[in-house]
């Protein structure tokens, strides 16, 4: 089995004293695509922000590329962030720059490469995501899918060892979503990039993932191959994987304080 690129060891994250992630353990193996699944409020996006060193954790430890994130100095953390790439949900492009300049930005900021080399690298990255002919466009001129692809080109500008995707399919039509999935697969298979994909889109997750982890209300529910999740008899896993209308997730929403909220002191 390959070494872990990232180890999440008993990690807890608190907001206002409440655990939004509760003693989570998971390994991301080198070269694999791991999908972190969960509904709204499951803690999956918080998990991503912790793994990229964006926010600190309150308990446990995260070891990224062999080093504890908590023990890193600011400059070591900056080095770590340079060795990973993140595709944010919105693409997070700078609207005042062309697509090409957006992709070139990390190269200009973090390397001493000559402009000739950067120019070729930008063209290669844009070709990888199918946007080379749109290099001179401004982000406002791009569709949602194109913005996401431009964001991906920027995320891979520095040839990261690990790529994090935050809801890569969100807001995309099925065809564009499948194209992005194929890009994730290609980058993973052909470049050996380790990928962590946070998503609630099951079709996409089943297309791309080698392994899956399901979180619910900040707790670890299950980890396994896509087939193992499909075969699970756990009612919560089955409801999430198959999108069932009946099950623990919907029961939870139905129960609670609705009646007392409506009727208050009248009952």
């Amino acid at each position: 089995m390959p070494d872990p690129a990232i180890r999440v060891i008993d990690v807890t994250k608190l907001y206002d004293g409440r655990a939004v992630l509760d003693r989570i353990c998971l390994d991301v193996l080198q070269g694999e695509t791991l999908a972190i699944l969960g509904g709204s409020g499951s803690g999956k996006s918080t998990m991503l922000r912790l793994m990229i060193g964006n926010i600190p954790y309150d308990g446990g430890d995260i070891v990224g590329l062999g080093r504890s994130l908590a023990s890193m100095t600011e400059s070591e953390l900056a080095d770590y962030r340079r060795s990973i790439g993140v595709l944010f949900q919105s693409g997070a492009l700078f609207n005042s720059m062309t697509v090409a300049d957006n992709v070139a930005l990390p190269l200009r900021e973090h390397t001493d490469l000559p402009e000739e080399t950067i120019d070729i690298m930008v063209k290669i990255k844009l070709e990888l995501v199918g946007l080379r002919e749109h290099a001179d466009k401004m982000p406002a001129q791009l569709s949602g899918g194109m913005k996401k692809r431009a964001g991906l080109a920027r995320a891979i500008a520095l040839d990261p060892k690990i790529l994090f995707y935050d809801e890569p399919s969100a807001g995309l039509d099925p065809v564009t979503s499948a194209e992005i999935d194929q890009l994730i697969i290609d980058l993973n298979h052909k470049l050996g990039v380790t990928s962590v994909v946070v998503t609630h889109e099951m079709d996409s997750a089943f297309r791309i993932a080698d392994r899956m982890v399901l979180l619910d209300r900040g707790k670890f529910i299950i980890s396994g191959t896509p087939q193992q999740l499909k075969d699970s008899t756990d009612p919560l896993v089955r409801q999430f994987v198959y999108g069932l209308t009946e099950g623990p997730l919907t029961d939870r929403r139905r129960s609670g304080t609705y009646e007392s909220d409506l009727l208050g002191d009248y009952i």
Binding site: I120, M121, I124, K125, D159
Partner: peptide
């Protein structure tokens, strides 16, 4: 070989 090296080969 990363893409900066490939870019050098293109040069």
């Amino acid at each position: 070989m990363d893409s900066s090296a490939i870019a050098v080969l293109v040069e």
